[in-house]
Each structure stands twice: as structure tokens, then as C-alpha cells.
Design a protein around this nucleic acid. Structure first.
Lengths: 394, 394
DNA sequence: GATGATCTTGGGAGCGCTCCCACTGGAAGC
DNA sequence: GCTTCCAGTGGGAGCGCTCCCAAGATCATC
């Protein structure tokens, strides 16, 4: 059996049958104690700290520690270099040794330590998805869940892990900034950035691969994936017009977001193209209550309205509720079109005609673009198509 | 200016004003090239690979590489040890030197390298949230988004990052297993595990802190956070009974999940306690369509039903739709109660009476429990209370 | 003023991996 | 037969940090 230096000067016998050695235990215990005392800036103490007086659990954990590549190499009768090459199936390894390494890996149950690998390669093997916004609950929108599903699948293909950062609080934003500056991830996907979000600048300064999800307001970033908000909104409005609606209004989303603005522009363009007067936008914040409020206000000011394009399904659902409460029939009196085609759209009464956007694809393409970027390629921005889904509301 | 060894035997001059040095550039370029050739098992090539012919960008990136703790120490005129202690505000550092280190950190824009720290401390600074299940789209349920919001906030307090793992595909499950075995995270939160999910065993074998979200079917794990499904379901059923409903059925969720089973049991208990006959459960899978289908089937077999407890809001929404299609009035003919109190519950027509469960709190408490575990404490399982929210449907 | 006790300090080993490089021996080319 | 080449190999430095330890500085105590 090989002797492995555990800490400076102390030796732990290894091998499956090696019995516990009191001397080593006390060493470990000392080490753990000092770990605990030296608790770092982040306020957590050492991992293996003194639960239930310690010896039993701690010693067991410590002795059964992960095998290292060195041990695999020894067992396979090769050098660490060869073992490493075999593991990463790199060239310059004879079939025999490759086989020996594989066997040793299996016997020892070896799993490479990703942290060590990350330190050596300067790649963390993780990509971060940052969702920015004041209110953490905006994230509760099922929209993000779908983005995540898509991104997760694409990252899985590239064998990257997904770190999720909800940059709502100041503290959260600071952590994201630090993550980027410290290169704690190989790349970042940035979503829902407001105008002048400082995180955009931090990302740039950190010179780290960044893909934007949704073109932010302002100058276009170099890499982004977006949905054809303009075209979708135009199509929605055209649909209302084609149904003979002439007094069509829009309940727009926050105009300091790219999507909110583009969807409003699409509405406006379509109205003008049809020779109709666009009504001034009613601004909401993409939530159901804001849609209901905007709709109520709209009805008060413009009772003659006969068609409504809402910036998303949540707001459309709110509009439907406000219309119901005002005694208007949908679509007979007022036709309503939403945007997103989330699950809600099928559940509302009446079911919502809405602009379908490929949300999971958005996530997937963001992730793929990021992977390409991390790989050193230079992908081009991408706009994903939308399509109108006709249901009962318009 | 200090000379820093870049790779073996080559030296790069450092400092803000150090001009580019052709010799070093070619070195870097060689290094990058070999990085690209040696692409590893994971199929991605070296990070800084040859985009746009290389020299410009690559050299700039490479030269402006992150300052290290050593450089901070040199600049502050102290040893690396002192710098490290100052940084982690550990004791045994004189105020003067502490100040000097802080200044150097500011001047250099130093950010500690989390990977190196992780390697040295054997703590990754990340916790994983694993969502298990065949279908990745189950994750699209807004439920998870809220769990994430809660967990994220709690992890933020402990300065841990959140890794999100959707263990849907075989590949995904394998990656999660490897993540656990390689200790790629300090702890894991496991959600939506089916009966006999192999990930549970892997987690145990990896001897890594694990908190279950929702008590899985089978023997209770040592650490879990759950919602009072039993009590909530009982309360929902009692509510229906108290409204004079006697032929009350349940549309239950998957009975191989802890929540599905507990909610069914709660219904059953309440019925028996009220001296009523529980109807055999109609099983769905927590989705809207499955709720509609189950409701339709129920109506076919038991047209006399006058009350329905659905295992969650999605299924309740489906039931509402099926009832509407069957021409039944809610709540006049059939009263409906859901479970979850998600956003849908307020949007359905009529709005849903439902059992509110503190989902964000579930995520938060899972994360807190995990942090405690990582800290070496031994927290006790937690059951969070539910409460009935009465709206129009029952 | 000598003897500890405590606080500060820097050196150095270690975390577990990757990758450069120098070296070997056999196949190919002349 | 001799170079030339290259697949195969192992040694060793390096990634950037933490933490042990021994030694020096400072202070209190008798």
C-alpha cells in the first residue's frame, strides 16, 4: 500500500482494509477545529465542523476521501500524465495502458475533481443565467422556467452546468458582478436587463462571453437572441384589424424593456399601415393586475374600443377580467390578443388568441450561442420567429 | 516591475504600462493552439481558441489577466499569508497591513479566484437544486420558479451560488450523479423524486449534504422540507363537506409522488371522518389536460358528483373546463377546490378556492436547511403549514 | 530584567488536476 | 547502416488559493 501524505508530515495509510489509526484521527480533528475557528468572510465555517462531537463521522468521511488521479495512475501502473490523457481520451496513449487506466478508474470509483480541473484549465465548466430586475417575483413568470428548460438542455449537450443568478437585490447584483469579474463561470446569459443596467457594463469589462436574451433597449449588444417582437405585435394587430376592428388599443408592457417597446412599435406600425389611428399606449408591467388596471382605465377613457392587443398573456388575462367586470363580451364587443402563448392562454375564458413565441428555443439558442462563444467562435445575433395562434378571444 | 513566470520558462512583464512583447505573444499563441488540439472528453476546445486569427484579442486578454493574491501581497508589501488573512478578515493581521492590503486590492481591482479557493478549501461555494422527472416540461410549472426564488434568496444570504440541474434525460441524470460523486457542489436539494429514484441513492453514497424538497414516497429521508399536504387536503375536503356537498370526489395527482399520495390520503381521511364514502381516486399527472380528462371520466361514471378536490390548481383548472364543457355550473352544481394557490387560481372562471402552500418558503427553508447541514449542524425536518383560500369555486 | 504568553509574520506545502517538455524505442526513409 | 520521425511515456511546473508552522516582535508578569 502506498503512503500518502495527508497534511504536512502526517501520513494516512490507504486502501480498503486499512484500519482506523488514532494518531491520524486526532490530526484530522485538529485540522477541522482550526477550520472552524478560521471562518471566512462569507460567514460559513468549515464543512466538516464538529457535528455530534465529531470523531465517528468526520474520520469516516476523511478516510474515505475521493481517490485522486495519482492513485488511479499508481493502480494502473502508469504515470499521472498517461492517466490524465487516457481520461480525457487524448492521443498518445497505448491501448493497453488506456485499458489499464479505465480498469483502475472503475475499481477505485474514481471521479475527476472538477474544481482541480477548472483551476488547471481555467474553465469552470459552468454557464450562468442571470435574470435581472428589481422584483424577484418577476422570475416567477413561467416564461423564465421555459427559458431555463431550453438553456439547460443545450448546456447539457456541451457538458456545462447551469448557474442561476437572480439579480434582484443589491446584494444579488453585487454577487453577479463578482461572479463575472472573478470568472466564476465560463460565460453568461443575461436576461431582462433594463435600460442602463450596470450589469451589462460589468460583463463587458470582465471580458467574458455574454449573450443577451432579448435585445435590450439601447445599442444592440454584439451577441443576443431575441424573438421577433415587432413582427409578432404587427401580426397580432393586423389580425384584429382583419376582423373588422377599427378602434384597436394596446396595453403595452414596460417601455424601458426591449420587448415592451418593440411590441408597442409593432402595434403602432400595423395601425398606421392600416390607416388607423393608434391610441396612446396604456403601460403595464407584464402582470395580470396591471393588465386589468390598464384595461379598466382604457375603458374609462375610450369606451368605444373594440380590439385590444396586450403585451403579454398575463396582461391579456387581466384585460379579460376587467372586460368581464365591465360587462363587455369577448370577442363580440372587444376582441383581445395576447403575446407569449403560455399555459394561461389556454385556460382563460375565452381562450386567448395570442402570439406564440418559442421560449424554450430562446433559451436553447442563447445557450448554444454562448457555447459557440466559449469555443472561440463568433456567432451572429439571432431573431426567432413568432406566429399567431388563433383561439376564441379574437 | 515584477517578472512573473507565465508558462514554463517564459516570462511576461506585468503592470499597466508594460508594452506588448512579441516573444510572449507567440508563446501564448502556441499555448492556445495546443489547447485547441487537445480538446478534452467534453468536446469543447480551449477557451481562447483562434477566433479572428487570434493575436489581437487573445494577447490582450492574456496580458490583462486577473491579478493574483501574490501580486496584491507584493503591492501591499506583505506576504501572501497576510494578504489572505486580511482578505478573509481573519485575525492576526495588524491594522496597518490590513489597510495596505485593502488599498492594493482596490488599486489592482483584485477579485479572488473562486476556483482556487474552492480547491484549497474543498468547498465549491455552490449548492445544486436538482429537479428530477422524466419530462423536462414538468419544470415549466410555475411551482418550481417560486421554489427557486425562495432558495435563491436563502442561498444568497449564505453566499452560495445556485446550480440548477434538470435531471430529465438519462444524460442529465448521469451528470447529476457525477456532480454529486465528484462533490461539484457543497450540497444538494432534491425535488420531485419518484419512488425509487436512483439519484437518492447516489446522493447518499456520495455522502453529501442532501435536503429533499417534499417527502418522497418510502422511508423518510433524514433531512427534508415539505408542505402539510395531508392537512391541506383534509381542510379542502372538509370545506366541501361543510358546504353541504356529500358526493365529493378527488382528482388526485400521481400516486407515486409523495404529494400526490398525501393529498389523496387527506381527502380520504376527511371523507371517512365525515362519515362519507370516498370515491375511488381519478389519477392525473398535475397538468391541466389531465385534470380535464379525469373530470370528464369522473362525470361519466359518477354524474351525481357535487364536489371535487383536485390535487393541484392546474388539474382544478382542467376540471373547471371539463365541467363548463359538460354544462355544469360551478359552484352551483359542482364545487371545486384546488391546491397550490398559484397565479392560475385567481384567473380561472370562477376564481378557484384552493389550498395555499408557501412555495417560496419551501425553497427558502430547503436552502437554509442545506446551509445548516453544510455548516455541520444537524437540522430537523420541517413541515410548512397550508391554509385554505376561499374564492368563488367552492 | 528575565520569563512567559500572545500577537504578527512569512515560508512553504498542499489542494488535484493539465500540459509542456525532454526522453525513449521502434518504424520508416535513404 | 544511418538518420529522421513520431507514438508513447513520465517528470515536473504550474493554476491561485488556504493554512500549518516556526520564528520574530510585542507585551504583560513577577
Amino acid at each position: 500500500m502506498v503512503g500518502i501524505v495527508w497534511w504536512s508530515g502526517h501520513t494516512v495509510k490507504r486502501g480498503r482494509s486499512a484500519g482506523p489509526d488514532p494518531g491520524d484521527w486526532s490530526t484530522l480533528s485538529d485540522w477541522n477545529r482550526s477550520q472552524t475557528e478560521h471562518q471566512g468572510a462569507h460567514g460559513r465555517s468549515g464543512r466538516a465542523g464538529g457535528r455530534e462531537g465529531g470523531l465517528g463521522t468526520m474520520a469516516r468521511n476523511a478516510l474515505r476521501r475521493q481517490p485522486t488521479l495519482d492513485e488511479v495512475a499508481v493502480r494502473a501502473g502508469v504515470s499521472r500524465s498517461v492517466a490524465s490523457r487516457a481520461l480525457n481520451n487524448a492521443p498518445h496513449v497505448s491501448p493497453a495502458k488506456r485499458e489499464a487506466v479505465e480498469r483502475a478508474v472503475r475499481q477505485l470509483g474514481y471521479v475527476p475533481n472538477p474544481t482541480a480541473r477548472a483551476l488547471a484549465t481555467r474553465q469552470t465548466g459552468a454557464a450562468a443565467l442571470v435574470v435581472s430586475g428589481e422584483d424577484p417575483s418577476i422570475f416567477a413568470d413561467p416564461f423564465f422556467a421555459q427559458v431555463i428548460v431550453g438553456a439547460s438542455a443545450a448546456l447539457e449537450e456541451a457538458d456545462l452546468h447551469l448557474m442561476l443568478c437572480l439579480a434582484a437585490s443589491d446584494r444579488g447584483r453585487k454577487r453577479v458582478a463578482e461572479l463575472m469579474r472573478s470568472k466564476g463561470a465560463d460565460g453568461v446569459m443575461l436576461m431582462a436587463l433594463r435600460e442602463d443596467d450596470p450589469l451589462a457594463r460589468v460583463a463587458e469589462e470582465a471580458e467574458m462571453p455574454v449573450v443577451f436574451g432579448g435585445r435590450p433597449v439601447g445599442p444592440a449588444p454584439r451577441w443576443y437572441v431575441d424573438v421577433d417582437n415587432l413582427g409578432g405585435a404587427r401580426e397580432a394587430t393586423e389580425h384584429l384589424v382583419s376582423r373588422g376592428r377599427t378602434r384597436v388599443a394596446t396595453l403595452c408592457g414596460r417601455l424601458d424593456t426591449g420587448a415592451g417597446r418593440a411590441r408597442y412599435r409593432g402595434y403602432r406600425d400595423a395601425m398606421l399601415a392600416a390607416g388607423l389611428d393608434p391610441l396612446p399606449p396604456r403601460e403595464g408591467d407584464f402582470t395580470e393586475p396591471s393588465g386589468a388596471a390598464a384595461m379598466a382605465a382604457l375603458l374609462a377613457d375610450h369606451p368605444e374600443v373594440d380590439g385590444v392587443f396586450a403585451a403579454n398573456d398575463n396582461m391579456a388575462a387581466g384585460a379579460l377580467r376587467a372586460l368581464r367586470e365591465a360587462g363587455r363580451q369577448v370577442p363580440a364587443d372587444v376582441a383581445v390578443v395576447g403575446f407569449d402563448d403560455l399555459a394561461v392562454a389556454g385556460i382563460t375564458d375565452p381562450p386567448l388568441t395570442t402570439v406564440h413565441q418559442p421560449i424554450a428555443a430562446l433559451g436553447r439558442e442563447m445557450a448554444r450561442m454562448l457555447v459557440a462563444l466559449v469555443d472561440g467562435q463568433d456567432p451572429t445575433p439571432l431573431i426567432l420567429p413568432t406566429r399567431l395562434v388563433t383561439r376564441a378571444s379574437a
